[in-house]
């Protein structure tokens, strides 16, 4: 795992790490091992994007925007649309992101996301097909990290899901095929759009190992004290991707319990997210500049 906050200035010494070891079920901020910090979410924040969301989880701040383009499908998958993730690490988040500093993390995040979204049961790309083998929608999911305060993977996956939930795809009025020329007419009414089905979109849960105990939603300091972490991407109660970060190793039993913990936590996350997204009304005020 990339250690984010400057190692030079913010590396907790051995003695502090000892304190972070959690033999009792109580963490430095009073949470239990399986507790999440409260988070704040909003959708439709970028007016010129097809769908967008912003998530703030304590000090982690993520902005996601979805853009749509008409593209030709891959020859080997003529019936499917395309989905691409791009992560941008703002140098405002931490000084290490300056220049090419955040690239490694960005690639790690986008790879993890695309492997989590690969399965058809997770996200059905066939819905994005316009004309078999010729035209399809391509979704660009752009993720901007505005602030980093630990637990990036979870925050990003929630924000991506919310942004896809918010995404509206224009309806097609007519398609004119003239030899190799394809002319697509989009519906004039800007409000007649289809929404994406995101019930299966995966949520990632980082299970962090500190000492011999596992916790979820680590803050930046806890991340630095951990020996390793497993990122479990869960869709409809099934694991769709696992990636391990950090240098430490996991005992098979610990690993298994991490996965089980990941699934149960993802279910709780899913419930909260669905409930919160359900509260959003159409044409709601955009919140964070209130």
């Amino acid at each position: 795992m990339l250690i984010l906050s400057s190692e030079k200035t913010d590396n907790p010494a051995r003695i502090e790490r000892t304190y972070y070891l959690i033999s009792e079920n109580i963490r430095i901020d009073g949470r239990e091992r399986e507790d999440y910090r409260p988070m704040e979410i909003e959708t439709d924040v970028v007016s010129h994007a097809f769908g967008s969301s912003r998530l703030r989880l304590a000090n982690t701040d993520v902005l996601v925007a979805v853009k749509i383009e008409v593209d030709a499908p891959y020859p080997e998958r003529p019936l499917e649309g395309k989905l691409e993730f791009f992560v941008d690490c703002s140098a405002n988040a931490t000084p290490e992101f300056e220049g090419r500093g955040g690239e490694e993390l960005a690639v790690e995040l986008s790879n993890c996301l695309s492997s989590a979204y690969r399965s058809e049961e997770v996200f059905n790309l066939k819905k994005l097909c316009i004309m078999k083998g010729r035209k399809c929608w391509k979704l660009y999911v752009d993720i901007l990290l505005l602030e980093v305060g630990g637990n990036l993977f979870d925050a990003v996956s929630i924000a991506v899901k919310a942004a896809l939930w918010n995404t509206q795809i224009p309806k097609i009025k007519s398609i004119n095929v003239d030899g190799s020329n394809i002319d697509i007419q989009v519906c004039d009414d800007i409000f007649s759009c289809t929404k994406l089905d995101v019930t299966g979109a995966p949520l990632m849960v980082t299970v962090c190992k500190i000492g011999d105990k596992c916790i979820v939603d680590p803050n930046a300091a806890e991340e630095q004290c951990s020996v390793g972490a497993v990122v479990v991407a869960v869709s409809r109660g099934n694991i769709c991707t696992i990636s391990q970060t950090g240098t430490g190793s996991f005992h098979p039993d610990t690993f298994k319990s991490c996965l089980i913990l990941g699934i149960s936590v993802a279910q709780r996350l899913e419930d909260s997210l669905t409930e919160t997204l359900g509260e959003i009304k159409a044409n709601q005020d955009v919140g964070f500049l209130k």
């Binding site: 239990e32 999440y36 409260p38 988070m39 703030r56 909260s272 997210l273 509260e279 919140g287 964070f288």
Partner: peptide, 14 residues
């Protein structure tokens, strides 16, 4: 029993 995960809308900010 773990706590319910708190997720709020930014428009309901305190």
């Amino acid at each position: 029993m773990p706590q319910k995960i708190q997720m709020r809308l930014a428009s309901n900010r305190v």
